[in-house]
Design a protein around this nucleic acid. Sequence first.
DNA 1: GCGCTATCTAAGCATCGTCCAGATTGGCTC
DNA 2: GAGCCAATCTGGACGATGCTTAGATAGCGC
Lengths: 208, 208
Amino acid sequence: MSTATAESRPYHHGDLSRALVDAARKILETDGPAALSLRAVAREAGVSPAAPYHHFKDKAELLEAVAHEGWHELDLALSTARASTQDSRARMTNLGVAYVCFARDNPALYRVMYDRSRDKDALPDQLKDDGAYCQVRNTIDENAGGGVSEIDLELATIAAWCAGHGLAEMIGFKQFAPLKAQLGGEEAFLRAVFEHLGMFAKFTATQD
Amino acid sequence: MSTATAESRPYHHGDLSRALVDAARKILETDGPAALSLRAVAREAGVSPAAPYHHFKDKAELLEAVAHEGWHELDLALSTARASTQDSRARMTNLGVAYVCFARDNPALYRVMYDRSRDKDALPDQLKDDGAYCQVRNTIDENAGGGVSEIDLELATIAAWCAGHGLAEMIGFKQFAPLKAQLGGEEAFLRAVFEHLGMFAKFTATQD
DNA sequence: GCGCTATCTAAGCATCGTCCAGATTGGCTC
DNA sequence: GAGCCAATCTGGACGATGCTTAGATAGCGC
């Protein structure tokens, strides 16, 4: 038959790549990373288990596409945070808080993003050029007034990024619950930790 | 037959739990986390695929045992690092370097350790009482001369731990290679990042 | 309107985690 | 020392997974 039945999709989907990525993200949000099988994605998209292989080489390549979207959305979140204040010290803390909040609000997506990175032993390349990593570096540079050596700037960015990632992975840990309550909520806890990090102390300590 | 053939083990292994954990660790080191199936572990231990279920409830419980050993060994590594110098500032950096080096030298084991933690949304409990986390907290307390509030001490420990974990997960990333070369090796790179973190700046900045 | 080719399905393979029924045997009781 | 219980281990099975292959379908350029 040339057209689909009332229930089923037409034989050719139209935009399966897009639909598969959307299905994957829906499963991630709903059931978490453990439930994210290629077959489940195909099921969610209403398509046979083999169909995805015409759009992605394997499961890893699908996850790569999902991760790519995640990094893009993280970019946006950091851009917003960076523009949120004029105070150079607060801006840096806001950036950190925004980073961790993104991970907290999209835990499964964030996990996929970093799992892919670890498999490749590398962060996505676009981060360095105009992405989230670049935003952190620029913010540090602005805070320091521009007179920082390239190597110091890079080290400070790495330090900040690692701290943010570590906190992002652990923000939900049960052991932190009492401290969060004591400090008046999760965001207050986050700010306190970031301020304790004293990162960029090298550049901003004299302004204290 | 009552005894085993020349090739095979006796019907009852004797200490299968131990052998299974060892087999799992061997597979982790040799082939990485992706190759770590329960069946492969059983194969490595020379036992049927169902045998492990008489010693561990499921695969997760086996991994839990592996992770437990990993945390214990991390404790030892940090103890050694902590005793390596009298200088309070250097001691803290040494602790961080030792942490990351452990992760670098046991990447698959470290991954299992944290994967288990994320599944439970908690670090292992013994860390708080007399384990690695406790060592970091004590070292910070010593550095600060003891006059730190409980809450500040906790925040600083969390900050340090998160930074260490973040760096541990990314130390192998390709993007850092040029910087490592420029600084004269991986350990020099590590020290530089940790010093840039300026963590505990709150407690030690005045000693600069 | 024809055919090329991208897209999709159906069926199958090896592997996985887990369970069950039954074989084996170490160690306690008498 | 004999006998039995319970812990341990095997073989086989089930459903699910990632991926491949052969063949069905249909959009699109000519």
